[in-house]
Design a protein around this nucleic acid. Sequence first.
DNA 1: TCCTTCTTTAGAATTATTCCAATTTCAACT
DNA 2: AGTTGAAATTGGAATAATTCTAAAGAAGGA
Lengths: 142, 142
Amino acid sequence: MSTHAIHSDALAQKLADSGLRNTPQREVVYDALLTKRDHPTADEVFVRVKPQLPGISLATVYNCLETLVQCDLVRAVNFERGPTRYCPNLHPHAHFHDETTGATHDIELPTTLLAKIKAILPPGYDADAIEITFRGKASAPR
Amino acid sequence: MSTHAIHSDALAQKLADSGLRNTPQREVVYDALLTKRDHPTADEVFVRVKPQLPGISLATVYNCLETLVQCDLVRAVNFERGPTRYCPNLHPHAHFHDETTGATHDIELPTTLLAKIKAILPPGYDADAIEITFRGKASAPR
DNA sequence: TCCTTCTTTAGAATTATTCCAATTTCAACT
DNA sequence: AGTTGAAATTGGAATAATTCTAAAGAAGGA
């Protein structure tokens, strides 16, 4: 069984759960995110899937990415000003944005800390999601 | 002494520190942020300062906001996709983005917690800035 | 098969922001 | 006070990212 098949099984499942159809476009877009987990932009995903599905349009890439976000298979990440980036890591994590290389690294986020962070919210504030982003330099070659 | 004068004193100081000139445009833009601390966009600042300085251009508002950010008088805040918002609160704080009203609230961030959050970074990672954003609903009328 | 709905597509439109070239302002120095 | 050069402002054009729109294409169920 190919990794592609594994991916599309998980995808098909989640799509079905949301009452959405599985399509070749959605498969290749999701596969592109899983294959190279470097937080690509929609444009970058577009060039990566083009060879596998030459007829695909940029609008469709946007549509597919949005669908994957809705299905909770992918997280959309925004750094200041720049284009939205997409991340298939579903574990709770923060992002470190390296200012020198432009690369983005996932940082594990312990659930105990996550709880402590949520605890600073005053009563009446109910958070659906938390986004934590570091900016700086990573001296260690990763 | 008017609040305006107080503001421009602090502004003049910081600008001088950075070797920049004080201008009426920079004063009214900074004053607009301090007067209504609701995290306005550049466009919103533009309409607020227009009455006081009818000749001001949108490009100048962008320039002034950028200058204020450089001088560490203002923080630029980005929520997913939307336009950049500006915040004159210099204390360490997180942002809560209310999905129902669209409003943004500052959330105090204890320095002890801030330290704990920074501590999750692996060795070699050096963060200049941390951005913490909550998204959700605030039931309590504030 | 037919019908309805979902999806994709190409290109136009929109939004936010930056760039640019031409003034204007202003502080410094005669 | 007049000149000069750097800094700042201005309006409009340009760019970048994303969304919208209308038409064509699949796909599942009666």
